[in-house]
Amino acid sequence: MSTATLRETPAASTVTTVPRGLVRTVLRLHRGALWIWLAFVAGTTGFLLWLLGPGADTAQRALETYGYSGLIMATGSADEYSDQFYNADTLLTVASFAIALFAGGPLIARELESGTAQLAWTQSVSPARWLAVKLAVPAAFIVVGTGLLALLYHQVWSAHSNLLIAGIEPRALYFSLGPATVAAPLLGLALGTLIGLAVRRTLPALAFSGFAYFLVYAFRGNHWPFQGRYQQPELYSRSRAFTSAGAEIRDPGCYDDKACLAKHDVVRFTREYLPSSDYWPRQLLETGVLLALTAVAVALAFALLRRRAAAG
Rank of each mutant, 00 (worst) to 15 (best):
A132M: 12
I142M: 13
P138V: 10
R220W: 10
T44F: 09
S82C: 08
V266Q: 04
G55H: 04
V41F: 01
R240I: 11
A12P: 00
L148F: 05
F208I: 13
G196Y: 10
R268Y: 11
V289T: 08
L197S: 09
G67F: 02
A198S: 07
G32D: 06
R238N: 14
R110L: 08
M1N: 07
T17I: 06
Y66S: 06
Q84D: 09
Y68K: 04
C260P: 08
W50I: 10
T294K: 01
I168Y: 14
Y86F: 15
G145V: 14
V216D: 01
F242G: 01
V133S: 02
L112K: 03
I36D: 02
G312T: 15
R28G: 12
T181K: 07
Q232L: 09
P10S: 04
A136L: 15
T181S: 07
I36W: 04
R268H: 14
W224T: 03
G246E: 05
A180H: 08
L215K: 02
A247K: 11
A295G: 10
A299G: 12
Y86N: 04
D278V: 12
L187H: 02
A120M: 15
A166R: 13
T294V: 05
V125T: 15
H223D: 11
D278I: 14
V18H: 07
L177S: 01
Y230R: 11
Y153M: 14
L191G: 00
T193D: 02
L6E: 14
L63P: 03
A100S: 13
R271K: 14
P204M: 07
E234S: 11
S244W: 00
F102K: 03
L49D: 02
A128C: 03
D265Y: 03
R7W: 06
W224H: 10
R28D: 13
E8P: 01
Y86A: 00
H30V: 11
L235K: 00
F269M: 11
A247V: 02
G228N: 13
A62D: 06
Y236I: 12
A218I: 10
L285G: 15
H223K: 03
T45P: 00
V296I: 15
G55Q: 05
E169S: 12
A103V: 10
A59E: 02
V26H: 08
G288I: 11
A117C: 03
N222T: 11
R307C: 01
R129K: 14
A190L: 09
G115I: 07
V296W: 09
A241V: 08
Y174D: 09
N87P: 01
S2K: 12
L300Q: 00
T294D: 01
T90S: 13
H154T: 13
G228H: 06
T122K: 05
G104S: 01
A159Q: 11
G76F: 06
K258C: 04
L112T: 02
Y86L: 08
